[in-house]
Amino acid sequence: MAMDFSYKETWLHKINPSLKLLIMVLLFIHLLMIHNTNILINYMIGMLALYLFFTGHPWKRLLVISIPFLLIFLTSSTSMIFFGKGEITWAKWGLVHITEESFFRGLHLGFRGISFAILGIVFALTTRPVYLFYSLMQQFKLKPKYAYSFMAAIRLIPLMIEEMQTLHYALQVRGVQGERGVNGFYRKIKSYSIPLLSQSIRRAYRIAVAMEAKRFSNHGNRTYFYRLGFSKFDVIFLCYLLVIIPLSYVTATHFPYFSITDVRFGS
């Protein structure tokens, strides 16, 4: 199955998943409060280092995954660059009005988008869902019925993608691909989604019944096959951030890339 990627386990994999998630959310909130592009760029470089050197995935894969980053940069920045508020006009064609402020604000949004993307992908590449949900049960007291439902459902996704291939063949044989127009398009969407959805719903339902047949219940005192605690790797991760974040502030003050320090309008 295509989703079965092999990788080398690194220290990022060994961080407690709940802690990793919590830190990701905190970093997200923190990032939203950074309005200085200089800091943001340094910050981003710090996160990029994690992505490039510590996920344990081969270079080629990392490269392929990072292609959408560029797209993210564009999607996050273009509207703001073209249509954002600002007073120092650089260019104006009809509705498009590029100002210095809007340009830097757009740039800032682009870098912000990339930073989120990097953080997210680092998490995704270094966290096994099963460990994440075990950890969420143990550290955040997530109810087992939610955690195991997630794990069971994630298991079904590759299965579904395989079925999609068969479905694709079957529909090709029936001639569904050939139909044109809005009706044809609607039928096409329907002929993919209805079989996949109904098959998945039935399967999920059966799995739930099978789980209960195996005496699954919701009480919290389970004995866990995986115990996820904390280790020195959590400390390493925190230390990394505690160095990188202040460092990005310091270098931004002393070696700024741009003179603008707050991209918000009217600040």
Binding site: V130, Y148, M151, R206, A210, K214, F216, R222, F225
Partner: peptide, 19 residues
């Protein structure tokens, strides 16, 4: 394909043992 909730053999039996 509709009996298991875990992706690996050992994890699946462990699920019952946990229960």
């Amino acid at each position: 394909d509709a009996q298991f909730c875990m992706p690996y053999v050992d994890e699946e039996i462990a699920f019952v043992l946990e229960n």
